[in-house]
Design a protein around this nucleic acid. Sequence first.
DNA 1: TATGTTGTTTAGTGATCAATAATCAACATA
DNA 2: TATGTTGATTATTGATCACTAAACAACATA
Lengths: 212, 212
Amino acid sequence: MLSICCLVIDMKHTLDDKPRGGRPWSFDRDKALHMAMTLFWRHGYEGVSLADLTKAIGVAPPSLYAAFGSKAGLYKSVLDRYEAGAGHLDVEITNSAGGLPDAVKLLLEAAVAIATRRENERGCMVSTGLITCHPDNDELARDLAMRREKSLQQLADVLARFACGEKTRRIARHVLSVMQGISIQARDGATVEELHEIVDEVVWGLKERFDA
Amino acid sequence: MLSICCLVIDMKHTLDDKPRGGRPWSFDRDKALHMAMTLFWRHGYEGVSLADLTKAIGVAPPSLYAAFGSKAGLYKSVLDRYEAGAGHLDVEITNSAGGLPDAVKLLLEAAVAIATRRENERGCMVSTGLITCHPDNDELARDLAMRREKSLQQLADVLARFACGEKTRRIARHVLSVMQGISIQARDGATVEELHEIVDEVVWGLKERFDA
DNA sequence: TATGTTGTTTAGTGATCAATAATCAACATA
DNA sequence: TATGTTGATTATTGATCACTAAACAACATA
């Protein structure tokens, strides 16, 4: 898992390596992705129309389709950017952890920070993305489910340093469920303090079992 | 909170008390609600069209509007029915609990059962309903957020019998977050066993603190 | 049977959906 | 400057959205 935030260089005309003839892009691809991310994050995939996107980005539909293929393609590009940037939970913060409870504490606190940071929309795009949808979007929903599954595996991997593999999978699933609940409650207006109460409860429960 | 499941009597022509002139309903209101519940539960509010509903129920749009006012009105009626029936978590199951960890265990196991029961759709309609949506549906989203808030309060109320009020609110929030995570993971295909692992983790953590 | 009430039907409403056809404009290279 | 490439624009596609106007049908009561 990458821990380096994807701070994309802001080139004037998109991110081509070589000059390659033809009209240059009139809009910045990364800025367009950021705007689309904000909209999808706030309203969900089915709550954002192509008209909303083109209006916010300031570009006509055919330009978006040339750049991203489809609304679903744009959404996937947004998710990739999100997972590398604003929604990225750097598991390497656990490097300094003194034990499993401490590692879980750091991970959950990072999740709270992402879900409540002022410059972000609330919650996590992946945790609550496309949990239900129109059948037309089933493939996209499976993509989201796979991203959540990947998160579970990443949690299990990082926790494996602190406990035996049999237990880490269970604990990872528990931690993931709490992160998902935190996402929902953050969207519902829970304060940072209230979300930290959840974290404290989880960590408290782990401490008695795993600390010396 | 009601603990008696709302097993509505299946009257031939809706649920009027008195004869009241005019043409009788051609469809069973409760069966229509059940069908609508299934669709909304599976696909979400924005993933179900009025055409889907009228086709599944077998009735023309004006009849649905006469009975429920609007798509949003139908959805609210569905949610009321859901909370009293298929989605109802009977907190009185904790009457037999020997302590707070046991009470939480019973509540979470009930949540897993609801989220995975074969005759239900997966997950919980309220936990994952309208977390994000088109601005047109903001009022409905607030309704869902209030139902989740009500769930939190109900959990705190029932847990208050096992610990002091200051702690119960925190624990209730933790339990609610786990229930919400369980909903998401149930939809993503997690098995009953995997979800029970989460429950066991939570209960384990509580046991060391609250059991004698 | 006549009348009022209420739910039914068919057939649409204008608005919006995601996506595109046709054409024009801006670049690199020859 | 001429040509090829590529993204821009305007205008529009058929499909679908939630919802309803108008007329008909089934009941209770007078």
